[in-house]
Design a protein around this nucleic acid. Structure first.
Lengths: 119, 119
DNA sequence: TGATTATATGAATAGATATTCATATATGAG
DNA sequence: CTCATATATGAATATCTATTCATATAATCA
């Protein structure tokens, strides 16, 4: 069997063809990173709330029923993944979704979840 | 400020409107779960390889350059998320993507990663 | 039947991560 | 300037997770 194989694989030709067309590791990492950021219930709820309207940090805390600190930490994650934008008005910081892509992600994900059999 | 707020939020009306339209917790959890499964480089590479053609476990190990055990464990995660299907022929187990949705996920994710500024 | 091969899986471990708590920064009010 | 408020952030912790190692299962072959 394979141990970092090349020798004992079943279909050597297929392996080489597929391997040749694999994505660069950086691109794979970036893609996985985006999904990882989307893959947390708190962040998903933040994004869904923001898909309805612009909201400040305090209101996001209220909507989710979580502490301001927890929300701020997660907003930081969303910011560095460039999934949200923000604007500052005095002390208040308003967050919005970064672009239409983000809404698309949410929609595709929610649709898929809805279609899956209830567990 | 808010501490599981309701009292000190900035825009009480907005909070209630958004809150009323929030997704059920189960649906949020399911959606986040899908993204979480997609959010790992190894699983992303497995799915990308399978988007090219059906492959057995051993060949997947060869393509990714990882042990059979690691691959099998990750395939299990993909299976329980219903992102892949498999068929058995003798000792060999062939895996494929579960449906077109999965390809769509990959495409949207990779596109988004490509568009983001290189870090 | 016994040996070999392909895959699956349980336990252990190292590394990642979400939340909390305490505190820092920054803006506006008085 | 001082106080209150909105947000950000560092450290600590509890939980989760990806891989490894050892082993189990199951199918084929001699």
């Amino acid at each position: 069997m394979s141990d970092i194989c090349d020798v004992f694989c079943i279909n050597k030709e297929a392996v080489e063809v597929v391997r040749a067309k694999m994505l660069e590791h950086n691109l794979v990492a970036d893609t996985a990173e985006i999904f990882k950021v989307l893959g947390d219930p708190t962040r998903m709820r933040l994004l869904y709330a923001l898909s309805q309207r612009e909201l400040c940090v305090c209101d996001l805390s209220a909507v989710l029923g979580m502490t301001q600190s927890a929300i701020s930490h997660q907003l930081r994650v969303l910011r560095s993944a460039r999934l949200v934008r923000y604007r500052k008005t005095g002390k208040i910081v308003y967050y919005t979704l970064a672009d239409a892509h983000v809404t698309q992600f949410i929609d595709v994900g929610v649709d898929h979840a809805r279609e899956s059999q209830p567990r």
